[in-house]
Amino acid sequence: MPRGAVRETGRKTAGASLIWSLILLAAPFLSFSPGAALPWGVGAALLMGVFPAVLVSYLQRRDDLRRLPPSSLPPAVLGAAALAFMFQRIILWLQGPLTLSAAVFALLAAAVVLLIANAFTSWSWLDLTLGAGAVILGTTAALLLPGLPGTAAGILVAGVLAAVLAVRVRQGNPSRHLAAGAAGAAAGGGIFLWLLSYA
């Protein structure tokens, strides 16, 4: 892969990883007190958001990463999804925050959608993440802050992520970016909201 393409892929992976890290960091605060929620959020964000992206970036720079078939998940997403399955067991075993479990399931749902979609086309993990993040982070901000400030914060967060997606829609293949973002909002965001109602 050309060096410029690797750099661009790295930027997209870093952007998606940052959004999922924020989602995983914030989710436990919806069901646990701040003192109990912080270790869960930091651990989840580092394990599933930061670690896979850093590892893949390191391996790509050393040219030690084997290429995967076009229909496969990107390596960072594959790593995050594998770790998500293990982390779900930890949440259940230690009776962790169910809202964090909802966020982890949202990540898995978005990854499954990407896996299926990329068997037929080439969607971007960043586009799916922006769609899911607009729903999840917008809802989380609205629930964490009471009253009007929470509503305003939720709208602002969702609006910023939607605006980033809108910028991407104007580049390259607009329908592909839009479809991926909508699928991320429906799958990742939808699963999160559904599970949140039971948490």
Rank of each mutant, 00 (worst) to 15 (best):
M1K: 13
P2H: 09
P2N: 09
G4T: 06
R7S: 08
R11G: 12
R11D: 01
A14P: 06
A16W: 14
I19A: 01
I23M: 14
L24Y: 11
A26L: 06
A27F: 00
A27P: 02
P28C: 02
F29H: 10
L30R: 03
L30T: 08
S31M: 02
S31D: 00
S33T: 02
P34W: 07
G35H: 12
A36F: 13
A37P: 05
P39D: 01
W40T: 03
G41N: 01
G43M: 00
G43P: 08
A44M: 10
M48I: 01
G49C: 07
F51T: 01
F51L: 14
A53D: 04
L55Y: 10
V56G: 14
S57D: 09
S57Y: 15
L59W: 08
Q60L: 07
R61V: 05
R62K: 15
D63Y: 02
R67V: 09
P69F: 09
P69S: 13
P69Q: 03
S71D: 13
S72K: 09
S72T: 13
S72D: 02
L73F: 06
P75A: 12
P75L: 04
A76Q: 11
A76I: 01
A76S: 15
V77Q: 04
L78W: 07
A80E: 08
A81W: 02
L83I: 04
A84T: 06
I90E: 07
I91G: 14
W93S: 06
W93C: 06
L94T: 09
L94A: 11
G96Q: 01
P97K: 10
V104I: 15
F105Q: 09
L108T: 08
A109R: 12
A110V: 11
A110T: 11
A110G: 15
A111G: 08
A111N: 03
L115V: 03
I116F: 15
F120C: 09
T121Y: 15
T121K: 14
T129M: 07
L130G: 05
V135Y: 12
V135T: 13
G138N: 01
T140Y: 05
L143R: 14
L144W: 15
L144N: 11
L145A: 08
G147Y: 01
G147H: 10
L148I: 10
A153Q: 00
G154T: 02
L156R: 09
L156N: 04
G159Q: 08
G159N: 05
G159K: 04
L161C: 12
L161D: 00
A162P: 05
V164C: 06
V164W: 13
L165H: 13
L165N: 04
V167L: 08
G172L: 03
L178E: 00
L178A: 11
A179P: 02
A179F: 02
A179N: 03
G181Q: 00
A183P: 04
A185T: 04
G189I: 10
G189S: 00
I191S: 15
F192S: 08
F192V: 05
L193F: 12
